[in-house]
């Protein structure tokens, strides 16, 4: 069943891709094949494979329980918030909380998770920013 859903989704993606390829505008430069031919080929392969998934699905994969899904979605959401927070609050503060969340969810007690967050954030800041000179996100406080 999962493969069938995946196939339907893939087919929709392929059709969208083919449509998006068909509206590519020509520029003033032209060559024999043009900018649309290769995307058409790619879209066709996508569509054919998706149809195959619908017709001949594999065995059902081992999906996690609903709780597992929630876990993944929350983790992804935290990472997205982290990406947004980087320029707002700076690297050090954002990283403490993002690391603490992930360590906590992987089974560390909350106060140890927070400590891990502080150590990770500080450690990365020292190694990558102060020693190696990488540019990390700067918040309003300058770090």
């Amino acid at each position: 069943m999962s493969d069938r859903i995946f196939g339907v989704f893939g087919l929709a993606l392929a059709l969208f891709y083919l449509w998006a390829a068909s509206i590519i505008k020509d520029s003033f430069m032209v060559d024999v094949v043009g900018p649309r031919a290769f995307p058409y080929m790619v879209g066709t392969v996508l569509a054919l494979c998706s149809i195959y998934f619908i017709l001949r699905p594999d065995d059902e994969p081992a999906w996690p329980a609903l709780k597992g899904f929630a876990e993944i979605i929350c983790a992804a959401a935290v990472m997205l918030v982290y990406a947004w927070a980087l320029p707002e609050f700076g690297f050090l503060i954002s990283t403490v909380f993002a690391t603490a969340y992930l360590t906590w969810r992987l089974g560390t007690l909350p106060h140890w998770a927070l400590l891990t967050g502080v150590l990770t954030s500080g450690g990365i800041y020292i190694v990558f920013h102060l020693i190696l000179g990488l540019s990390l996100a700067k918040g309003p406080l300058g770090f």
């Binding site: 982290y82 990283t95 992930l102 360590t103």
Partner: peptide, 25 residues
């Protein structure tokens, strides 16, 4: 449980330091 978050953060650091863009992260 401690190692994986560190790996994730180093991945973020790497990508952010070359692109500097929230969209890319």
């Amino acid at each position: 449980r401690i190692l994986m978050p560190v790996v994730a953060m180093i991945s973020f650091v790497g990508i952010y330091s070359i692109t500097g863009s929230t969209f890319d992260v």
